[in-house]
Amino acid sequence: MITIMQKLFKRFFTDLFKKRKNLKMGLYGPPNGGKTTLANKICVDWLGEEMGSVSNVAHETREIQIKEQVIIKSNGKELAFNLVDTPGIATKIDYEEFLKVGIKEKEAKARAREATKGVIDSIKWLDDMDVVIIVLDSTKDPYTQVNITIVGNLQARDIPVLLVANKIDLRKSDIKKIQSAFPQYEVVGISAKQGNNMDDFYESLFKLTR
């Protein structure tokens, strides 16, 4: 009962203040799902500049990055938000994995340390989000405990969620797998890198924040 009251209280004040301030829209997911690529695509589309660097090596984003005052427009509607790109959430980080891609030992250890801090920050920031976009690599198995834990925590906090099945341009992409793993949420298939299906994605953002 107390939890229900807390949720109602939070929703009342969230709704009240949403009208006055920008939404905080978080990009969450496991490493290498394409969160920063999507953040960059959104920023290039609407601000004309990129947000962060991307790479094929996991844990490229190790700090929370925020782009304020992103305004998107569609069919005469306007949506303003602060975009929060978060480090990928993982349950293990081994500096030796970075050695395999040619990173020197000292740098690999530093990168692993920063990555662990990044995961901690991502989890801490969950409470501050108004809406969350979970970015998943649609060529990978979505039914992992990290994904289930992220979704479960957002559900428990009553935070609206949009699931993005990224990398639909790749042959192994399978959106249906994501839909069947998380049937409670809308899933939008995109390729953030190629810019495929971004109109549907932006339309889903309007629906999510309605």
Partner: peptide, 20 residues
């Protein structure tokens, strides 16, 4: 579960690489 992941990250070092 989220706290377990967070605490795991805090304890990672050269011997303990995390959990599955």
């Amino acid at each position: 579960e989220a706290e377990l992941i967070k605490r795991t990250m805090e304890e990672i070092d050269e011997d303990f690489k995390g959990i599955e």
